[in-house]
Amino acid sequence: MKAIKKINNNVAICEDDNKKELIAFGKGIGFPSMPYHITDLSLISMTFYRMDKSYYKLLEEIPEEVFEVSAMIVKKAQLTLDCKLNPNLLPGLADHINFALIRFKKFKKMKMLFSYDVEQLYPTETALGRYALKLIQKKLFVKLPESEITNIAMHFVNAEEENISEPTEFDVENLIERITNEIESKFEITINRKGFNYNRFVMHLRYFLKRIEEKKQFVDDNGVLFVAMKEERPEIYECAVLISAIIDEKLPAQIIQDEILYLMIHISRILKNNTSN
Rank of each mutant, 00 (worst) to 15 (best):
I62E: 00
I62S: 04
I62N: 03
P63F: 00
P63S: 02
E64V: 02
E65R: 11
E65D: 08
V66M: 06
E68N: 13
V69F: 04
M72V: 03
I73V: 00
K75M: 10
K75P: 05
A77N: 08
A77Q: 12
Q78I: 05
Q78H: 07
Q78G: 03
Q78D: 11
L79A: 10
L79Q: 15
L79P: 10
L81I: 06
C83M: 12
L85C: 01
N86S: 15
P87Y: 03
P87A: 01
N88Q: 09
N88H: 09
L90D: 09
L90G: 05
L90H: 14
L90T: 04
P91L: 02
P91S: 03
G92I: 05
G92C: 12
D95N: 15
H96C: 05
F99E: 13
A100M: 11
A100T: 01
L101C: 00
I102C: 09
R103T: 05
K105N: 01
K105H: 04
K106M: 07
K106A: 09
F107Y: 06
F107I: 04
K109E: 09
K109A: 01
K109R: 11
M110F: 06
M110Q: 03
M110A: 02
K111Q: 11
L113Q: 03
F114I: 00
F114M: 04
Y116I: 02
D117C: 04
D117W: 00
D117A: 02
D117E: 08
V118T: 09
V118N: 08
Q120H: 07
Q120P: 09
L121K: 15
L121R: 14
L121W: 03
Y122D: 04
T124I: 09
T124W: 08
T124S: 11
E125R: 09
E125P: 04
E125H: 07
T126S: 12
A127H: 14
A127W: 07
G129Q: 14
G129A: 07
Y131H: 08
Y131V: 03
A132Y: 13
A132M: 13
A132H: 14
L133W: 05
L133V: 01
K134D: 14
L135I: 07
I136G: 00
I136K: 08
K138P: 13
K138R: 15
K139V: 08
K139Q: 15
L140C: 12
L140S: 11
L140T: 08
V142L: 14
K143G: 11
K143D: 15
K143W: 10
K143I: 11
E146P: 00
E148D: 13
E148C: 02
E148T: 01
I149N: 04
I149K: 07
I149Q: 06
T150D: 08
T150A: 06
N151C: 11
N151I: 01
N151K: 10
I152L: 10
I152Y: 13
A153Y: 13
A153F: 13
M154D: 08
H155G: 06
H155R: 15
F156D: 04
F156V: 01
V157T: 13
V157G: 08
N158G: 10
N158P: 14
N158Q: 14
E161L: 14
E162K: 15
I164D: 09
S165Q: 12
S165F: 07
E166D: 07
E166H: 07
P167N: 05
P167G: 00
